[in-house]
């Protein structure tokens, strides 16, 4: 990666409180839970039992560290690989399983692949597939909240490959011009350049950190969130992904006596059991055919009413 330093980088890296073992164990349990859910749905997907759920494997520290740094009122704009954000913010496994199965109990009414997500009550944005389109949305929400007098920060999560997309640049450009309280969180793989060097062009400070170390992520994102909340604008954070961050944190916790292999096994089994129950409970029937025509507009216009009636007549 090209070395680009901004004035704020050093100050930010040293700022922010760290995490005690209690908080770390709690974060670990969430990460491990996400890992178990991920593996289970991957296996079911391979067996053809459910649709394809994009994997969040390898991003657990980057995701959970960032989510822990955000406040509950802050909005999260995830990618399709970041469904675990909903679990972190309190979506039940039964609701999540219903979403993945995309049947009658799916809150999204079977309208998107399993990676599709929307959780307004949890301040998680509706996720789409095009690359980078959510970055300007995060800027717009951040600007609107400040204009309305609500102190909140928005976090746009994206991947190293998305820095090539037009709306990545548009998002950073508008964030710089509008001084939006947004944090841009780029998950960078080994063969990718990250977002830092682009941040310079848009007048935004940037910081890089070890994205496989949940403490480093928490500290870097906390500093960026604090800066945004102080009204100082957006920050670009490169979270450099590495080998299994869940195993890494587990090793650290076990070494410090804050976790044990026994507890770990019990946790994994409990999550497996909870998920199996959730999948069993999730209605596998199709959503109602009539619901296909809902939510295109707020109210059903005449042409959709006619098409719905035609579809239902043929269906019968």
């Amino acid at each position: 990666m090209m070395e680009v330093q901004s004035r704020d980088t050093e100050a930010m890296a040293s700022g922010g409180a760290s995490l005690d073992d209690g908080s770390l164990s709690e974060l670990y349990r969430g990460m491990r839970r996400a890992q178990v859910v991920d593996a289970r749905f991957a296996a079911l997907g391979e067996a053809g039992a459910v649709g394809f759920l994009p994997s969040g494997a390898g991003r657990e520290a980057a995701l959970f560290g960032a989510l822990h740094a955000l406040r509950t009122g802050d909005w999260v704009f995830p990618t399709m690989n970041d469904w675990a954000a909903a679990l972190y913010r309190g979506m039940s496994l039964s609701t999540f399983a219903a979403r993945v199965l995309a049947g009658a109990a799916d809150p999204l009414k079977g309208r998107d692949m399993p990676g599709g997500l929307s959780a307004r009550g949890l301040r998680i944005a509706s996720v789409s597939a095009p690359a980078g389109t959510h970055l300007p949305h995060a800027v717009g929400v951040a600007w609107a909240a400040r204009q309305r007098g609500e102190e909140l920060v928005t976090a746009a999560l994206f991947d190293g490959r998305e820095v090539d997309a037009a709306d990545f640049h548009t998002g950073l450009n508008f964030a710089g011009v509008m001084k939006a309280p947004t944090v841009f969180l780029c998950r960078v793989r080994e063969d990718e350049d990250g977002a830092a060097e682009h941040a310079v062009a848009y007048g935004l400070p940037h910081v890089g950190c070890d994205g496989a170390d949940v403490v480093a992520v928490y500290e870097a994102v906390s500093a960026a969130v604090a800066r945004a909340a102080r009204g100082e604008g957006a920050t670009v954070v490169d979270l450099e992904l590495g080998d299994d961050p869940v195993a890494r944190l587990r090793g650290q916790l076990i070494e410090r006596g804050a976790w044990s292999a026994h507890e770990d096994e019990a946790l994994a089994l409990a999550v497996e059991a909870e998920l199996a129950e959730a999948i069993a409970q999730a209605e596998r029937g199709e959503p109602s055919l009539a619901s296909l025509f809902d939510d295109v507009f707020e109210a059903l216009p005449p042409h959709l009413e006619r098409q719905r009636d035609a579809a239902l007549k043929r269906d019968r």
Partner: peptide
């Protein structure tokens, strides 16, 4: 705004979401 129509509409979408 900057001269970038995707940003004009993209940020407007965010405002509407809010």
């Amino acid at each position: 705004t900057p001269l970038a129509e995707g940003g004009i509409i993209g940020t407007a979408i965010g405002m509407a979401l809010y």
